[in-house]
Computed example of a mutant assay.
Amino acid sequence: MSEAASIAEMPPRYDPNGVEERWYLKWEQDGRFKPDLESEAEPFVITIPPPNVTGELHLGHALTYGIEDILGRYTRMRGFNTLILPGTDHAGIATQNVVEKQLAKEGVSRYDLGREAFVERAWLWKEKYAENIRQQFRALGCAFDWSRERFTMDPQYVDAVLEFFIRLFEEGKIYRGWRVINWCPRCQSAISDIEVDDREREDSLYYLRYPLKDGSGDIVVATVRPETILGDVAVAVNPRDDRFRDLVGKTAILPLLGRELSIVADEMVDTEFGTGAVKITPAHDFADFEVAERHHLDMPIAIGPDARITEVGGPYEGQTVSEARVSVLRDLGAGGYL
């Protein structure tokens, strides 16, 4: 065959499909991505941030894992005993939500299926998208050791995490305590910050009058969430605010419920917001929780896991948050506190 004939048969454009897949398979079969357990070379290990099985990889994943792949290949060529450990993450509530959306298209809910059948559907989703993710990583050419792949619900993985937490507890580095969290009343579960869709909106700012216990006057606070006064335990002012200096240490009375509220000084308070005096509702506001911890205040829970008012709210118990807002505003106005 002449050189001219060879050139004529060469495809005008490079087609990666017939080349890259074949070479990746060979590299994987030859163990090119595995560390040498007998090697005395310095180890270099990357555990990839496991992608969620909620869907498929996107361009952001390609960027992140591409960097890790480059680092792994670079250190391997420098003589390090290199391992890049792949895996996927169950993603908890996020995966539950995508499965529920799939069920909704079929006209059923997780309650219709029952627990066991729903869990089975979730595992079917996981297997489908975990396999898609594996093939996407291979298509990217990522030099991962697939013989060590992990899923965040693998028994060995769960045992390792549990062991780590036990060690931290025994060393006094973790403890169990109350915190304000993101809670979904539909899922009946805590959810992470990255699963929260924050939205800005214009809202009404309500000014509420809290009488002083000694009858010497009142202190006015401003809030956009009047229904949360049912969980109030204090009023806070800035220690540098001369307007309220003489009120620090006194006691105010919570309208509608008659609960005694301490008036405390705390640097958290923005003197430019509202009146400069802030109601403290520790169980339902992140900043208020920190104030309550600093001042050793009670933290009554006025809104339950079902998004309804608890017994802490007295006559408003059982109302939804929206219903309680209407009722509280009505009664505050009737009592002359609004």
Rank of each mutant, 00 (worst) to 15 (best):
D288P: 01
P255G: 10
V220G: 01
T251E: 14
I280C: 11
T271P: 06
I280Y: 01
I219E: 07
V264R: 01
L230R: 02
E272K: 15
R225Q: 02
A234F: 09
T275M: 06
G217I: 06
G217W: 06
D242M: 08
V237M: 06
A252L: 00
P282T: 10
G215M: 07
G215Y: 04
A222K: 05
M268V: 05
I263N: 00
K279N: 09
M268E: 12
L230Q: 13
G274E: 00
T271F: 01
V221W: 01
R259K: 15
A234G: 09
H284K: 09
T275F: 00
V235Q: 07
R225G: 03
A252T: 08
M268I: 00
D266H: 04
V221T: 15
L257W: 11
L261I: 14
R245F: 07
N238M: 06
N238E: 11
D232Y: 04
A283P: 11
T271S: 04
A277I: 04
V220L: 06
R240Q: 15
D242T: 14
V235W: 04
A252M: 08
P239E: 11
G258C: 01
L257F: 10
D218F: 13
K279S: 09
L254V: 12
V237Q: 06
R243I: 08
A283C: 13
F286G: 10
D246S: 14
P282M: 01
P239S: 08
G231L: 05
G276Q: 06
R243N: 10
V220A: 02
V235H: 06
A283M: 12
R225T: 08
D218A: 15
A283G: 14
D285M: 02
